[in-house]
């Protein structure tokens, strides 16, 4: 059971260490935004949600892009993983996925800033 809280704390610590407050749960992301998965935790749903997310490709290091959202309440989301597979999920479950900046995207936006942690 230790993995869930532990992992999240590590990821936050990692993000803080690099000097970026730019981490957010996938469920908060807007349409069109891109990022890299920092941590996947079960959240309220426990291991089943965590495993479900991992099995659908949401794993630490994966590139995620929010392509679409539903017409009511901007829910659910359609998320492209690693440019190969698109997954529909609700924001509520998407919150179990913590997303940080994408290294290459960050380079495009802010040249000169390098973030090595994403690939580790």
């Amino acid at each position: 059971m230790k993995t869930h809280g532990e992992r999240e704390r590590q990821a936050f610590a990692l993000a803080q260490a690099v000097g970026l407050g730019f981490t957010q749960p996938l469920g908060r992301m807007r349409r069109g935004s891109v990022g890299r998965v920092l941590a996947v935790s079960g959240g309220m749903g426990g291991h089943d949600i965590e495993r479900g997310l991992l099995e659908m490709g949401f794993v630490e290091g994966a590139r995620v892009e929010v392509l679409h959202h539903g017409f009511l309440g901007q829910d659910p989301l359609a998320v492209r993983i690693n440019q190969t597979m698109t997954i529909a999920l609700r924001r509520c479950e998407a919150n179990a996925v913590l997303v940080g900046p994408l290294r290459d995207a960050a380079e495009e936006v802010k040249p000169g800033l390098t973030l090595e942690y994403a690939s580790s």
Partner: peptide, 9 residues
């Protein structure tokens, strides 16, 4: 409990 929607498009 609600079932999560995790569906490939």
């Amino acid at each position: 409990g609600r079932q999560p929607l995790l569906m490939e498009l």
